[in-house]
Design a protein around this nucleic acid. Structure first.
Lengths: 336, 336
DNA sequence: TTGCGTTAGTCATGCGTATAACTAACTACC
DNA sequence: GGTAGTTAGTTATACGCATGACTAACGCAA
């Protein structure tokens, strides 16, 4: 900046004031032009660190996740976070800890050294999470998990509402006998399994039906169990006309079972999935109607809370899952 | 740091020297302890910006990608980059431009303001890419693409070698009639399609065979075309005993065709895929043997080049794809 | 002429750190 | 007891920027 000032024949202060277009101090157009020209010629770029040093707060937010990269949704969450951050002129510092607590501590430390405006703490595999002590006093948000101590706001997908919407979609199509193949036993306390099942129950009850244990199964989330349990369900005394699979891989297995049995989807049996797995759901025959998890929105919302910077509380925000219509559920009227 | 010094009853310089454990200057254990204690009590954390300001270079690297987050591999590349960066104590500043050139320019500008040690420029959809002018003079690497002007090193997967390895795997199992279903026409210039086909050809030629156009097809990379073309191939006069599908989705379609025809995999017909799509390949019946793209390694290698900081040249580094054995190819001996 | 307001800038300072250059006190040796 | 060498620290400075306080030059009214 001193170089620019020298070349333009003005003081460093003038350069700063002109470049930041500070209101209140007026400069002649001639001076402004000289400065701009010198900036061009020197290829000058401001030093963000000096600015931060002076102003005390940087234009960055931190994102630390224990996500294994293979999780296909990790990228979406990060993208949402980064997108929202940039809208406020912030950059995102990303760290992936793969569950390594030492790395987590160290990288968090590094981020805080860089005076990040806040930290998104994304933990993918635990319902309740212990937020690192270092985050005390730093604006932070827990993503896809919940702060065990309820001090920090958390963002999660609304699994219950998603299960409700999926089931209701089947009921609205006229089905009265709706089975569910879940992805875990309820004892596992997996929030996805719990929530989706709760939504399923609520939708049935609202429609004046009851949950019939004879047509509820708990698999492992893979196609093998989808195949096995769908076959079982269809072989039962009073087989369902629709199956709600708690994830798309399970639905894939159900497709295989139904094909083997000669059942047409959606005419004989409707199927609905969950997760909207993009490498799978669109390519099943017929295309799988399923629930989309709001990963991008979750990333966005997390950063937004950081930016809003209100008083931190332990509230949990559940974001809605969108119904993705394809062709595995008929549009109206009863089936079978 | 002045506060720490005051509390410990020493000078700020002493604190700095003790904390950085500077060799050459010896301090009494007593002084060191006093400093450590004061640091603890105050919860002092060094200000990275002041450090950068003084030293001129920050502990961050930039990662800018035009990747849509849905690309399941984006996360892997970023993870690899971040992992390698952290091994050298660097943090990664991530930006996802979704192809928006203005955003790209602006965020690059911001990164450079933060004095990043280098920039990884990841572009997913073009073979040749115009590297932004701002990257002149900044250590940078082009990832999964090539600098049109050949000034900056590029990292890509070795598609040709992958195609070769996949085909050779089939030949080694005893197959002499190996078909290929590609994912694009060669005219599309898609490097993946081109390279995988080239590898396929080379393997055949090396084995003393020739490429028979009668058993080569060009699909769209989706299961539909896999199904269609596999059926066509098997209906031909001299059907193949093995099919190399240039991606896993296509292989999925091929599985469907073979099932419909009553062919057993791998005994009647062997199938090999490409991409090692984790939501698909392990769940096909039988598990799909396929080639894994080295995304994590590519991310790692890109940052490594930045760190090595040699004289930049336009060399292209192609990283090897690993063969993932599952059960769609027999281990030895001829088939059919 | 004096005094005051306006315009167009400049000066000086501090943010927090690392380090070259310096110093004070002590030890060892003749 | 004087001097050189060592130990254990301190002082001062610069990195690049933003900004409150200041100033020089000019116009204009009384």
């Amino acid at each position: 900046m001193h170089d620019v000032a020298a070349l333009a024949g003005v003081s460093q202060a003038t350069v700063s004031l002109v470049l930041n277009d500070v209101s209140g101090s007026r400069f002649s157009q001639k001076t402004k032009d000289k400065v701009e020209l010198a900036v061009q010629q020197l290829g000058y770029r401001t030093n963000a660190h000096a600015k931060v040093l002076r102003e005390g707060v940087s234009g960055m937010v931190g994102f630390v996740g224990d996500v294994v990269a293979s999780a296909p949704f990790a990228g979406k969450i990060i993208e949402g976070a980064q997108e929202r951050a940039w809208e406020s002129g912030l950059l995102v510092l990303t760290v992936n800890t793969n569950g390594d607590k030492d790395l987590e501590r160290a990288s968090l430390e590094a981020m805080l050294s860089y005076k990040v405006a806040g930290v998104v703490y994304a933990s993918m595999y635990h319902q309740e999470v212990d937020v690192p002590a270092a985050l005390r006093g730093v604006p932070s948000v827990v993503l896809n998990s919940e702060d065990r101590e309820r001090r920090i706001p958390s963002i999660i997908p609304d699994e219950e509402l998603g299960g409700y919407a999926a089931t209701k979609r089947l009921l609205d199509a006229g089905h009265r006998r709706v089975a569910m193949i879940n992805i875990e036993t309820l004892e596992s306390r997996l929030p996805a399994a719990l929530g989706r099942y709760a939504g399923y129950s609520r939708a049935l009850v609202e429609a004046g039906l009851t949950v019939d244990p004879a047509i509820v199964r708990f698999g492992d989330g893979n196609p093998g169990d989808g195949l096995r349990y769908a076959r079982e369900l269809m072989a039962g005394a009073n087989p369902p006309t629709a199956i709600f699979c708690a994830n798309d891989r399970t639905a894939w297995g159900a497709y295989q079972a139904l094909e083997q049995l000669g059942c047409r989807i959606p005419d004989d049996v409707a199927v609905i999935g969950f997760d909207n797995q993009e490498t799978l759901a669109p390519y099943l025959q017929p295309g799988l109607t399923t629930m989309d998890l709001p990963f991008v929105s979750m990333g966005r919302r997390a950063v937004e809370i950081l930016i809003e910077g209100g008083e931190p509380d332990g509230r949990i925000e559940a974001l809605e899952c969108a119904l993705i219509e394809r062709s595995s559920v008929t549009n109206s009227g009863a089936a079978a």
